[in-house]
Every structure is written in structure tokens, then in C-alpha cells.
């Protein structure tokens, strides 16, 4: 029987505190990077910074997605293989 899919309040609170902590960490990082922020705001480098940031931001997500896809496929293949072997064993009666 499947478990209920409702989110428990304790888990919700833990997720919210995690997000809030991450937000605080980001804010302090931004405060320490005033020079970078100023350089990025300059009109000449704005386009360059945004394009480069976009490229550098997309790669980890692509990597994560690719590795996750590979892992899921590998586990699925392994399960099919072991399921097939179990089926063979059952059919021989051993």
C-alpha cells in the first residue's frame, strides 16, 4: 500500500530553514563582492558578464542532469538483468 503523499510540518520547516540559510549565505557573499558587482554593472562588461555567467551556470545543471540520467538508466538496466536472471531461476525450479 502506498504511503500518503502529504508533507509533514517538520519536513516543511526543515526545508524552509534550509532555504532561508542559503539566502543568508548568498547575501553575505554579495556584500563581500562589491567590486565584482560594480564591474558587472559597467555597461561595457555587462553583456560579457551576463553571457559568461549564463554559460557557467548552465554547465553544472547539464552535468547533473546527464549523470542522473546515466545513473537511472544503469540501475534500470541492472534491475532488468537481475529480474531476468531471477525469472530464469524460477522457471528451472531451482
Amino acid at each position: 500500500m502506498r504511503a500518503s503523499s502529504t508533507i509533514r510540518p517538520a519536513r516543511l520547516a526543515a526545508c524552509a530553514s534550509l532555504v532561508y540559510g542559503f539566502r543568508l549565505a548568498t547575501a553575505s557573499a554579495l556584500a563581500q563582492c562589491a567590486m565584482c558587482s560594480g564591474a558587472a554593472d559597467a555597461s561595457a562588461g555587462q553583456f560579457a558578464f551576463s553571457k559568461s555567467t549564463l554559460m557557467m551556470l548552465s554547465v553544472p545543471y547539464l552535468l547533473l542532469g546527464g549523470v542522473a540520467l546515466y545513473v537511472v538508466r544503469a540501475f534500470r538496466r541492472s534491475r532488468e538483468k537481475s529480474g531476468g536472471a531471477a525469472g530464469d531461476t524460477d522457471s528451472t525450479g531451482r
Binding site: G45, A48, F49, S52, T53, M55, M56
Partner: peptide, 10 residues
């Protein structure tokens, strides 16, 4: 490559 793009596009 990110560093290259920043300097090249600017």
C-alpha cells in the same frame, strides 16, 4: 572558458 568569454565579449 567563462573567463575567456568575459574578456573577449568585453
Amino acid at each position: 572558458l567563462g573567463g575567456y568569454l568575459v574578456l573577449r565579449l568585453a
